[in-house]
Simulated assay, not measured.
Amino acid sequence: MSKAFTKESDADDEEPLSEPQLPAGAKNYMTPRGYALLKAEFDHLLKVERPQMVETVSWAASNGDRSENGDYIYGKKRLREIDRRLRYLTKRLDDPIVVDPATQQGLEQVFFGATVTVGEEDGSEHAYQIVGMDEADPAAGRISWVSPLARALVKARAGDVVRLQSPSGLREIDVLEVRYLMDSIPPALAGNE
Rank of each mutant, 00 (worst) to 15 (best):
K27S: 11
Q105L: 08
V154S: 04
E14C: 09
V116P: 00
I185C: 03
Q165L: 10
E125W: 05
L181Q: 13
E177R: 15
A140G: 04
H126S: 12
Q52A: 14
A11H: 08
R33P: 00
A158V: 09
K39C: 03
M30F: 02
E55N: 11
T31H: 04
D160F: 06
I73R: 12
V146I: 13
G169P: 04
L37Y: 01
R171G: 01
I73L: 15
I185W: 02
V54C: 04
P138M: 08
Y29Q: 07
Y74H: 10
W59E: 11
L189N: 05
L189R: 03
P51F: 09
K155C: 03
A60L: 07
E193Y: 10
T6M: 11
M30P: 00
E81Y: 05
A11D: 10
L153V: 06
S124N: 13
T31V: 10
E55H: 09
L38E: 07
I143L: 06
L17P: 04
G25K: 06
R78G: 03
A158G: 10
R179P: 01
P167F: 08
A156N: 04
P186Q: 06
A158K: 08
E55F: 02
I97L: 15
Y128R: 13
E125M: 12
D95Q: 14
A102W: 03
G132S: 05
G123F: 06
D183T: 09
D95R: 14
V146Y: 08
L86P: 05
M53D: 02
L153H: 01
F42I: 00
A140T: 04
D137E: 15
V54G: 00
G132D: 07
G119H: 02
R85D: 07
P96E: 08
P187H: 05
Y88G: 00
V116G: 02
L176T: 05
E135P: 01
R33I: 02
L181D: 15
G123R: 02
E177G: 01
T90I: 02
N28Q: 12
A136G: 05
M182W: 01
S62L: 04
S58E: 12
E135Y: 11
V54K: 13
S124T: 15
L37K: 15
R66H: 08
L170F: 04
G25L: 08
M30H: 00
F111K: 12
D134C: 10
A156Y: 02
R50V: 13
A140Q: 13
L107W: 00
S168C: 01
